[in-house]
Design a protein around this nucleic acid. Structure first.
Length: 218
DNA sequence: ACCCAGGTGGCCC
DNA sequence: GGGCCACATGGG
């Protein structure tokens, strides 16, 4: 299977996603943490509450009373750990860089390492921040991406890093492409996840020998 | 009543 | 490296 061909084909079917717009880079960072294992709908509610309180800043997050902050984060689930992680992140970035822009303007490799060192930021969340907040060409490999690409007949190498470089290698190395690709994987994943397995996948299925697996659900 | 959601960290083998 | 578990709310 040719990732590039899948990309082109999907792009024609789905059009531009132009995904994950936000008011600023901190909102992307916070959103990336909150969106773990939840829907964006819930994250939006949480972000709204944080804005209302005026806590969508490093200083605000670091200084906010824990229980009130938990109330903001609650709709996204795992609210206790997520609240702790947000406050630790805000505190550490304030200490180490003073502001979000300084954090994001490091060398890409250093930035990635730093992010991975923060509690609650694993490879996928780190890459989301790199791609959508810092505007750097790192492809986000989430469960949808893995599931879809594998069902298209090409097993990805084990481990996050290996899978990422494998996919990155098949696509033009641009932020635009990586953003659209990730967005389309999520869109597709949502559509075919159980409830309505058949929608708009047929044109994609022609690209791969085992494509039928996708609609038969195994 | 169940299943799932744009993961991560801790622990075990 | 892989497998399993806790973390928790909201919608289908």
């Amino acid at each position: 299977m040719d990732v590039r061909r899948v990309y082109e084909r999907l792009r024609k079917i789905l059009g531009a996603r132009d995904w994950w717009k936000s008011d600023g880079s901190l909102e992307v960072v916070v959103g990336a943490l909150l969106t773990q294992q939840t829907t964006w709908r819930s994250v939006d509610v949480a972000l709204g509450r944080l804005k209302e309180r005026g806590w969508l800043s490093l200083e605000g997050l670091a200084a906010a009373p824990v229980e009130k902050l938990e109330d903001c984060v609650k709709p996204t689930g795992f609210y206790r750990v997520k609240t702790t992680r947000l406050q630790k992140l805000a505190t550490r970035v304030l200490e180490d860089y003073g502001n979000v822009d300084a954090l994001l303007h490091q060398e890409p490799r250093d930035l990635r390492q730093y992010l991975l060192g923060l509690d609650g930021i694993g490879p996928e969340t780190a890459d989301s921040i790199l791609l959508y907040a810092a505007g750097l060409p790192f492809l986000v490999v989430d469960t949808y991406t893995r599931r879809i690409v594998e069902r298209l007949g090409s097993p990805l190498p084990p481990g996050y890093e290996a899978a990422r470089s494998c996919l990155e290698g098949g696509l033009p190395r641009t932020v635009e492409t990586y953003r659209e690709f990730h967005a389309m994987m999520v869109e597709l994943g949502k559509r075919y996840c159980r409830r309505n397995p058949r929608c708009q996948l047929c044109p994609l299925l022609e690209l791969c020998p085992h494509g039928q697996d996708m609609v038969s659900g195994r």
